[in-house]
Design a protein around this nucleic acid. Structure first.
Lengths: 128, 128
DNA sequence: AGCCATAGTTACGTAAAAGTCAATTTTCGA
DNA sequence: TCGAAAATTGACTTTTACGTAACTATGGCT
């Protein structure tokens, strides 16, 4: 596993722009190290980017993604904070389960629509 | 089942504004009938709104949702169009499956984080 | 007739999430 | 060491999905 990635390597790998990665840094989602001014992305940063983009695909806002990636961080040492994090994790998990139900429902309706189309094709004498 | 709903009835049911419903109409997502100028929402319109909001929760843009709700419409009579719709349905279904994988992955990582927190609590002598 | 609630249209405003452009550095291979 | 390629910062612009304001119309109640 490589030690560092340049910014353009990551933009190519993930199909995003440098502007996007700098924006994520401004937003406190990632903190690549620097050699001089130049950003160097460690494997952990790269993984974070993956997680961020996953969150984006699921329709989470930057603020929500910030919350989520904070949950991934090493657990703190204070009991109150730990309990708070656990509570937030439960919350996010519930949201994700809702999204999963939404997906199942949507797929089911798409299946029904597709069947309708296939039947229609059959009526028109098209072999499936 | 009721024949019509007023716009405010739907805003209350779904927790959205009248502006939003009018916006969705402008965008061609819904087409409530009219008595004079006043919109009357049929059960089918209400169901469409549900589908739209489901799409929103999944992070689809208005343009993408427009595509999806077009798939729900009655299949057309032309073979070419039917095949095109089927192809688009496959496409969306693939997207949805990707999102589902994203959800599974995110839940898995949240579970791991939670375990970490719980262990940490145990270390601190907190009873679970 | 007067009033309130609900509905409508038009038009301008805004926050989020980048895109784009310009003007410098910085890095790095020949 | 030099020059192209890659990176940086900063500022301005754009798109999406509505919010908000201002004003008009309509229908029921008293």
């Amino acid at each position: 596993m490589r030690e560092f990635y340049t910014i353009t390597e990551l933009t190519r790998e993930f199909g995003i722009s440098t502007r996007t990665l700098r924006f994520y840094e401004d937003e406190g989602l990632i903190s690549p190290v620097r050699r001089g001014r130049t950003r160097l992305f460690r494997p952990a940063d790269r993984h974070l980017v993956k997680q961020i983009l996953r969150g984006k695909r699921l329709g989470f806002s930057i603020a929500e993604i910030r919350e989520i990636v904070q949950m991934y961080r090493d657990p703190p040492g204070e009991v109150g904070q730990l309990k708070q994090i656990i509570a937030k994790i439960e919350e996010k998990r519930d949201e994700l389960r809702q999204k999963r139900r939404d997906i199942e429902d949507t797929i089911a309706e798409l299946n029904a629509s597709e069947e309708g189309c296939v039947e229609r094709l059959a009526e028109l004498g098209v072999k499936g």
